[in-house]
Structures are given as structure tokens and as C-alpha cells.
Write a protein that binds this DNA or RNA. Structure first.
Lengths: 119, 119
DNA sequence: TGCGGAACTAACAAAAAAGTAAGTATGGCC
DNA sequence: GGCCATACTTACTTTTTTGTTAGTTCCGCA
């Protein structure tokens, strides 16, 4: 049987689908109201639970816990517990999430440009 | 009264808050399950309502309508209605959303890298 | 004995997002 | 007259996400 020759529309479509999957995956990882914001706070240095909480005054403890857990499960942050009393837990970016820094910087810049352009 | 001299921690904090605001703004604009995906589909060329819908087989008509309306209201897509029967409506990226192309490309690339790295 | 602090956890409630299914307008075509 | 197609609306339900409040654990300290 002869193979069907593909037209360019099909290959454009398929490429788009692959990109959509990669993008969906990325959105799953860092999407939502909080995740990127949490990561940004860890950009400069590792922080403890309460430090993140204070830095992001509008997040609740519960949400912060949930989001940190998901980020950890997805390998985007690492969590280190020090056996002290009271407990001390530090969160920091991983290699994988460090790769995102230039991306959120660009997003910030975009936001800054267009947020000003309205106001 | 003497002005209080600022320490570097304070200025780091403030910078972080400003960035967070810009980023929150950006997340508001393009966050959610669908918006970036819709924009990506418009990257190569303008599309009609049903073309977008077919390209994104998992979105419902309702959601597509709602998301398109928000994107339009936020200036991220333009909507052109042709006075024909049956109606024809075309959507395309605006200048503002075109600026996001390199950002979602990078996100795609990141997603591709780490999606493979698991599987 | 009992308070304090850090980092949670659990139970429940409210709000927001998404899905389902049916209906609308228009005018050409059979 | 009835059907087709496109691009939506509308009403309603389900699911997901967030928020609220109240514990819990551990040990040191007054």
C-alpha cells in the first residue's frame, strides 16, 4: 500500500497538538494562582514555611501547604526538615524549577509593560 | 524627623512584591486551563470559532466562548465578524499577545524536556 | 503545670470553574 | 415548509479550588 503523502496542514496540526501537550503539562505543573508566585519567592534564597507565608500575605496556611506539597511531588521544590524544636523546614528551588526563572522574568516584564499601559 | 535608612532585606522584599504584582497580573490574563492553549492555536494564523474548537478537541463550546470573550476583553485577541450567512467570525492574536509567543515557546520547551524525563 | 512557637492536618463550607444539554438567529437551498 | 450550517446563549449540574476554623506535635522554659 502506498503511504499517503501528508499535506502541510496536517503536519502543522500535529505539531500544534504536540506543543499543546507540552504546554498543558507545563500548565499543570506551574499553573494556578499560587505556584509561580511561590517559586518566585524562592528565587533569591531558600525560605522557611512562615517566611513564604509572610512574603505572600494573601495566601492561607492551608493553600500554602497544599501548593508546597504539589510542587514538591512534581520536583519543583525541595523540602528539608531540620530535627529541631520548634521545627524548621526549608524550601528551595530545584534544578528543574531554576530553569523556569527566565520564563517568569519575561512574564513579569510583560505584565509590567501592560499593567502600566492601562492603569 | 530623620528618615529611616533602608536595609537590603526591605528592598529585596519590595522588589519581590512588585514582581509578584506584575506576575499576578500576567497570571490573571493568561492563566487557567485554556487561555494559553487557545493563543497557541492562533499563533500561525487566524482561525474561526469552529476551527479552534476542532483543534482543541477537549474544550466545550461554552468554555471556548467564555475564554474567547475574556481574551478579547483583555485585548489578547481580536474578533472580526463577517456579515455572512451562516456567520463567519475570525479570531487572531493582537500585538500584546504576540509578545507572549517566545514565552510560551520556552514553556513548551521546558515541558517537553521534563515530560520526557519522566514518562 | 501550662504556655509558646513552627509547621502542619482535618473537617467542613463557600465560591469559582467547568461540563451538559437544549435553544436561538439568519438566509440559502431542495 | 423544513433542513442545513455557524456561532453562539441560557439554564442547570457537577467538579474543583479556596477559605475558615480548630486541632496536633514536640520540647524547652517560667
Amino acid at each position: 500500500m502506498a503511504e499517503r503523502k501528508e499535506n502541510s496542514t496536517n503536519s502543522v496540526n500535529r505539531k500544534c497538538i504536540v506543543e499543546s501537550n507540552d504546554l498543558s503539562y507545563a500548565i499543570d505543573m506551574v499553573g494556578g494562582r499560587w505556584k509561580l508566585l511561590i517559586l518566585v519567592n524562592l528565587e533569591k534564597k531558600k525560605l522557611r514555611f512562615n517566611e513564604i507565608r509572610k512574603a505572600m500575605s494573601s495566601i492561607t496556611e492551608r493553600m500554602l501547604t497544599l501548593q508546597l506539597r504539589e510542587l514538591e511531588a512534581d520536583g519543583l521544590i525541595s523540602r528539608t526538615v531540620y530535627a529541631e524544636v520548634p521545627p524548621r523546614v526549608e524550601y528551595e528551588l530545584t534544578e528543574i524549577s531554576t530553569e523556569l526563572i527566565p520564563i517568569w522574568k519575561k512574564l513579569c516584564a510583560w505584565g509590567a509593560r501592560h499593567r502600566k499601559a492601562r492603569a
